[in-house]
Write a protein that binds this DNA or RNA. Structure first.
Lengths: 336, 336
DNA sequence: AATTCACGGGCAATCGATTACACCGACGTC
DNA sequence: GACGTCGGTGTAATCGATTGCCCGTGAATT
């Protein structure tokens, strides 16, 4: 039951612990016969380094912390899965925290991760301004990359998609489908992606002459319920636009559902689009046109950036990597 | 930038490190004025214990490892969220691993967690027999509780729901809705819940006189695609049963979707049930009748068991906690 | 008054690995 | 033949906290 330590291996191989360490972790050269003898001894005894002891000595834990607003949201789930996958390839572990969409909880979790000496932190901050202090002070102590969303007032690495470009693709697509007007169902502008998607929508709709309006801009939160409710508000308020551009898939799923129950046909009477391409968009009635987020690439990029930053803190300028997302056309919009 | 150590605090407060440790962690008594001085010094310097150093000394990490077959599956996502929540209350962190539904990966992750000295492991094994060796040897070294599923040939703590009882409720419910026959759309019997749900279905259908049959028992995997495909097979094979009892919600979602596209009305022509009560069952057309898994309570119970086991390993008999799940009736079945 | 005893506190070992430094023999150079 | 040099190895310090053991003090007990 007692763990095998490096001293046991040393004794068994008839060398010092220093040699064992060097033979196994390869710090400096060791003659090949001794190295072989050590490896042999280690194998026989079933030795494995104790990561705790190593971490204490070298202050590196091979562990990355990740904080997401809510793992319940399938988009973040996909992100977590991708990050876990990317880390696994590097032999690193993932310490996962859920911020419960609350900046205070988020701050606590970030501090806990710093205290735990993780090698780096991947965070999708839940709030654009309230999350700033915690993210800021965390980034001063550790390599940190923000994912998808980012907070104002700091400059750390960031990886996400180009929300503005994505929204242009969406608006042009529904215009091509014949929409002359569009409503925006979004989330309150408390974080960067909410803001950018909203801004991108308005800007491009304006540019290509799709009618919008304040009464057609409804901001709530990222949830199915809000999507349903927003359609209710819209329907009760008089004139209906030709398209509903939603800030994420949950809202869009709610919107589509509300349309069905009210007898508003999708996409014939009204086109609907989502954002994120979560798995269940395929299952909606009708399947949702949406914007695919390349979570795999986002995660890979984030892990790569963390690795780079491991060298020196803030040794280089912050990198902002904006991937270009793809529009996924399904049946909730008209084509041709 | 340098971290504050216990020695700094000791110097600042004019006492020894031993006293600081005792004053803060309260191992032994310290006079109240000294304690106050130490706390004051710690506060001023912004001292926080180094969990790595402590872990090395006391071999306890305040970290729990969790391994799930696939975090992509919303049921496991919910479980992870609940566990994270329950641990947070205890000031413990969660080391999350995804086994990618592969026993070999699962084994690797379990070993990694053991090596990392987590205090305990929560695992939902992906395979009923292939996962046994890894779970077995892990349980010999650490407190371990299995969640939802369990492997054969070991006896560790387990928390889940009573699948058999759940299936009785399901079968009786569709019978009450008028079904005289039912097909079972499940997953290959490679793990305990697959087996138990299948067995429960057959047993109770038989008992209450609902017709079943080998041609109406289709086993694939837990996925939407399989649900769709299975309905295709069923439809092509001649006679359709009055109900489709599915082993999980993903299958049921696929089934409902396939029924729609084939013009088989749900629930009028055929009733459909799911299992797990994942969030998207509400969104299906029609919303799915399913079995609710009390993930919160499952997680709480699991964390509690881990805590108990922390004392001595195998100091007591393995506990098997089977919670009784609730049937959630929606519109994919007939009532009355 | 002598002996215990409880209490509060310090010294130093300890957890298990890494690594700076010292050492030693062999080899090459002048 | 004396003197670097270099590759390989060992010794011991180190990371930061916890804790077994010991000591001195003052109160309680006999």
């Amino acid at each position: 039951m007692q763990r095998v330590t490096i001293a046991d291996v040393a004794r068994h191989a008839g060398v010092s612990t220093a040699t064992v360490s060097r033979a196994l972790s390869g710090g400096r050269k060791v003659s090949s016969d001794v190295a072989e003898r050590v490896r042999e001894a280690a194998r026989e005894l079933g030795y494995e380094v104790n990561p705790i002891a190593r971490a204490l000595r070298v202050s590196r834990t091979d562990t990355v912390g990740m904080v997401v607003p809510s793992i319940r949201n399938p988009f973040f789930t996909a992100l977590v899965e991708s990050v876990e996958h990317a880390l696994g390839a590097d032999g690193k572990e993932l310490l996962l925290c859920d911020a419960q969409s609350d900046p205070a909880t988020e701050a606590k979790r970030l501090d806990a991760l710093v205290t735990r000496n993780v090698d780096g932190i991947i965070v999708s901050p839940c709030h654009g301004t309230d999350s700033t202090p915690a993210v800021q002070r965390t980034a001063e102590r550790l390599p940190l990359v923000q994912l998808d969303r980012f907070v104002g007032g700091t400059s750390t690495d960031w990886v996400g998609v180009d929300d503005i470009a994505a929204m242009r693709a969406v608006v042009e697509h529904v215009r091509d489908g014949g929409a002359r007007s569009a409503a925006y169902l979004g989330a309150r502008l408390t974080n960067s992606s909410s803001e950018l998607r909203h801004a991108g929508f308005l800007r491009h709709a304006d540019e290509i002459g799709v009618e919008t309006g304040p009464q057609w801009t409804l901001l709530g939160d990222y949830s199915v319920e809000w999507g349903e409710r927003a359609v209710g508000l819209l329907a009760d308020s008089g004139r209906l636009p030709d398209a509903l551009v939603c800030a994420d898939d949950l809202i869009a799923l709610g919107a589509v559902r509300a349309c069905r129950t009210r007898g508003i046909t999708v996409p014939d009477r009204i086109q609907v689009t989502g954002f994120d391409n979560i798995e269940f968009t395929r299952l909606a009635e009708p399947p949702l046109t949406t914007v695919d987020q390349p979570t795999r690439r986002i995660a890979d990029e984030a892990v790569r950036l963390l690795g780079d930053a491991a060298g020196g803190p803030a040794a280089r300028d912050a990198a902002h990597v904006a991937l270009v997302p793809k529009l996924v056309v399904r049946d909730s919009t008209r084509t041709g």
